[in-house]
Design a protein around this nucleic acid. Structure first.
Lengths: 233, 233
DNA sequence: CGAAACATTGACACGCTTCAACAGTGGTGG
DNA sequence: CCACCACTGTTGAAGCGTGTCAATGTTTCG
């Protein structure tokens, strides 16, 4: 809701639709898989609380995390006819998610405002993925890590989390490494560097940012791709 | 059209819509930028002929290629309200593209068949991007390169190019390296390895596959994510 | 013919991975 | 309440894959 504020003003009929997205609800414990690679699903999922994770596995056991969805994110908007999900989708923590039938999602687009919000959400997810690819393909481990931390902080801020100094982040070093295309061991050393540079401290479940500007400068972070939409009225 | 065959049977009204996508047409010479990062655009683009390229630039001059769109691909389906494109979109060769107003694209979804085709196209692009991220994040240079070559071959096959033995590919080593997150120099060595293993030969503008199965095995290539939709009738 | 873009090669440096070991931490059952 | 265990995090040493720098070859095209 926080995330969608900028789309207002909302009509009552719109709000009804948005509420309907949350009508069903599924409570999850950590590491419960909602969707596995090649699974098919008639639902998308709105994350209501908790941290989730989208990833792909390799035959050799390797893992590439695509994204860490947080509350307000919608996951799994695939083609209805396509058989398989391209990724696994599971909980990282206790979490609540709302399955949304894809047919309902399609129908909801009859509201111009809702359609616009969904379009924006999809566009933003694609932009995040593109930036992620740049991160992994073309930035050093240090910069890459700083970038991910900043992106995460900003995404949290957009859903109302105070991130100015420190915030909860249940992503452990293995998972973070698998998002960054690094080994957990090397990530550990990178995190030490960031700590010793007095930029940011990552502890289990918790991130403390000591020097926001310094981090931004190191990461050459340009936040536009995460920006909420301009109020169009 | 070739790509969309599986969506049939098409009604005449559907075909009219598809034809309308190609009504305008813009002819391009190599390395003409259609869209730059942070540009805004009211159009998406249907590639009619030629090879295109989507990429992001870094302040230090680095470049990460996101995709090489080929005929039949639709690029730039962003949120109408969002100000900026997350990537640059330019021609690699002589090319023809059809700008499609996003409003027209939205309107076209009133046809169930067209809407379905567009949904599938978007889902597929996302799947390609996800696989690309896995490639760059978690596979060795050799495997990664093999994978990109196979993906490219298959995408060409889906639009009717005979790819069984050899095919044209105007992507030079610099661009290919920037797609793979490698330096052009190292890619050159990797290509030599692939050639000496008698798997594939990449020459300027041309790729010859000597051993399709060997390549697939090396790349651990799973083609499902590129698959055309199941005929649903 | 000459110039520009592209491809190729060698030597060397460095970032990241690998393997191995150990320390901290939280949860569980005896 | 404590002992134990699983999970997570931390550190060191060594090796390898990829990047960097510099030079040369090759192709294309005006």
């Amino acid at each position: 809701m926080q995330k969608l504020e900028a789309f207002g003003p909302w009509k009552n009929s719109d709000l009804e639709i948005l509420t309907s997205f949350g009508s069903r609800r599924r409570r999850l414990t950590p590491h419960q898989a909602i969707l596995r690679e090649h699974d098919s699903s008639e639902d998308a999922y709105l994350v209501q609380s908790g941290w989730m994770c989208m990833y792909k596995l390799l035959p050799d056991g390797g893992r590439q995390v695509l994204n860490f969805p947080i509350p307000g994110d919608i996951v799994g908007v695939h083609d209805v006819d396509s058989i398989d999900s391209p990724f696994t989708f599971e909980s990282l923590t206790d979490a609540d998610i709302s399955p949304i039938p894809l047919s309902l999602l399609e129908g909801a687009k009859s509201s111009v405002n809702v359609a616009r919000a969904l379009r924006w959400s999809a566009a933003r997810d694609a932009a995040i993925m593109a930036e992620h690819l740049v991160n992994v393909g073309r930035r050093s481990a240090l910069v890459r890590t700083a970038h991910l931390i900043l992106e995460t902080a900003l995404r949290l801020r957009h859903i109302g989390v105070d991130v100015s100094h420190e915030f909860d982040c249940p992503v452990n070093q293995s998972w973070m490494a698998d998002a960054l295309g690094l080994t957990a061991i090397h990530l550990n050393r990178v995190l030490r560097e960031l700590r010793e540079a007095e930029l940011v401290t990552v502890r289990t479940g918790h991130i403390t940012i000591h020097d926001f500007d310094g981090l931004k400068e190191l990461a050459v972070f340009e936040p536009e791709y995460l920006a909420p939409p301009k109020r169009s009225s």
